[in-house]
Every structure is written in structure tokens, then in C-alpha cells.
Amino acid sequence: MEGKKSSDHSGETTIRIPETTTKSIKLERGGGGGWKRGVGIFDFILRLSAIAASLAAAVTMGTTDQTLPFFTQFFQFQASYDDLPAFTFFVIANAATSGYLVLSLAFSIVGIVRPHLTGIRLLLLILDIVMVSLTTAAAAAAGAIVYLAHNGNPSANWIAICQQFDDFCQRISGAVVASFIAAFLLILLVILSAVALRRH
């Protein structure tokens, strides 16, 4: 908008600025806060969903075992998650991810209350990337073992055990799926934080 010049009898020139200019500046400054607050709320919801997925994966895998009786109770076949290091790593990684996500909820709430703070958003972005790597590595390692459990490997003379340990295989398969869901939600959190920082 352009101001209007006027001169009085003393020869001084005054510039009149319309009131709408200052109002539009205030609206322009406050407009981004609502968008960033919406991003913060969506971030909080995604973190709750990721907590549920990673915790379900850790608990399901960590409580999985199956015993098959063979002739007598003294001679049995048993399958447990801690028989394989990949499954142990899977439980630890998903438990660590869920623990981090619980702690990050406090920072996410601060991001909702104070949407213009970029330091918290940057910190969450870096830590979320670390957790994406950890969760994806654990899910991929466990997924390879689950594939072998279902299909075996004739070249290495590894037999498929899921025909006998069907309950065990169903539980570990579900745990791996839940972990991949948690990894996907963490990727969405990383993208959301990057977009929010980009538009700051």
C-alpha cells in the first residue's frame, strides 16, 4: 500500500500510513503459527502410533517360544527367540526405539506449545533418523531369519521349521511386520520434521 503525502501551512510534509498495513503485517506474522501447530499435533499422533508398533514388536518377539513334545516329556524340541542373536537384537532395538519415542513425546508437546522453536525440531529430526536406521536394521535382520524359517534353504540343507513350529512362526512374523510399520512411521516423522524446518 502507498502512503499519502500532505503538507500543512508550516511547510512540513507528513505521510499518512493506512491502518490496514499494520494489521496485515500482524496477520502475516501469525499465519505460520497455526500451520506449525498442526504439524506438531500430527507429529505427536505419529509418535504415539510408532510407540504402539515398536512396543508390540518387542513384546511379541520377546514372549515367543514353543515346545514340541517328542515321545516323552524328557525329550522335547523347543524354539525360543533368544536362540538366535538376530531375534535378541530385534527385541533390544525395538525396546530402545519405543523408549526413545516415549521420551520424545515431551519434546513433541513443547513443539505444539511453541511451534516457532527450531532447535527442538532439529534435535528430534536427528534422533529420529538414528532410530529409523536402528529399527530398519533390526526388522531386516529378523525378516531374513523369518524367511528361512518359512522356506528353508535347500542349498545349505536348512529345513523350514514352520511346519512344526507354526505358532512360533506366526508370532515372529507378526513382530517383524509391526517393526516395519514402526520404521515407516519414523520415516514419516523425519519427512514431517524436514518439511517443517524447510518452511521455517
Score class of each variant (00 low, 15 high):
Gly174Trp: 11
Val102Lys: 07
Leu192Trp: 02
Thr22Arg: 13
Ser179Asp: 11
Ser104Trp: 06
Ser49Ala: 14
Ser6Met: 05
Val39Pro: 00
Met1Phe: 10
Ile187His: 01
Asp82Glu: 09
Ile112Pro: 01
Gly111Lys: 09
Leu84Arg: 10
Trp158Leu: 15
Thr21Cys: 09
Ile129Lys: 06
Ile191Gly: 00
Ser10Val: 13
Thr21Ile: 14
Ala57Pro: 13
Gly143Cys: 06
Gln76Gly: 00
Arg47Ser: 06
Ala139Leu: 01
Leu127Arg: 01
Thr67Met: 15
Ile145Phe: 09
Thr67Cys: 14
Ile109Val: 15
Ile109Asn: 00
Ala178His: 14
Phe90Ile: 05
Leu127Gly: 00
Glu19Lys: 01
Ser155Gln: 15
Asp83Arg: 11
Ala175Ile: 07
Ile126Thr: 04
Ala50Gln: 03
Ile181His: 08
Ile191Glu: 00
Gly34Met: 04
Leu123His: 03
Ser173His: 07
Leu122Asn: 04
Ile120Leu: 06
His200Asp: 15
Leu148His: 14
Gly32Ile: 10
Thr72Asp: 13
Gln170Met: 11
Arg121His: 01
Arg171Leu: 12
Phe180Trp: 13
Asp8Trp: 11
Ala196Val: 08
Arg47Asp: 00
Ala183Trp: 05
Ile126Trp: 03
Ser49Arg: 12
Met1Ser: 06
Gly33Tyr: 15
Trp158His: 08
Thr136Phe: 07
Ser54Ile: 04
Ile126Leu: 08
Ser80His: 11
Gly30Trp: 10
Thr63Glu: 14
Val113Met: 11
Ile161Val: 14
Ile92Trp: 02
Gly62Tyr: 12
Ser98Val: 03
Ala194Gly: 04
Val146Phe: 11
His150Thr: 02
Ile109Gly: 04
Ala175Leu: 10
Ser133His: 04
Gly143Ile: 03
Trp35Val: 14
Ile187Asn: 00
Phe70Lys: 10
Ala144Leu: 10
Ala142Glu: 05
Gln163Phe: 09
Thr20Ala: 13
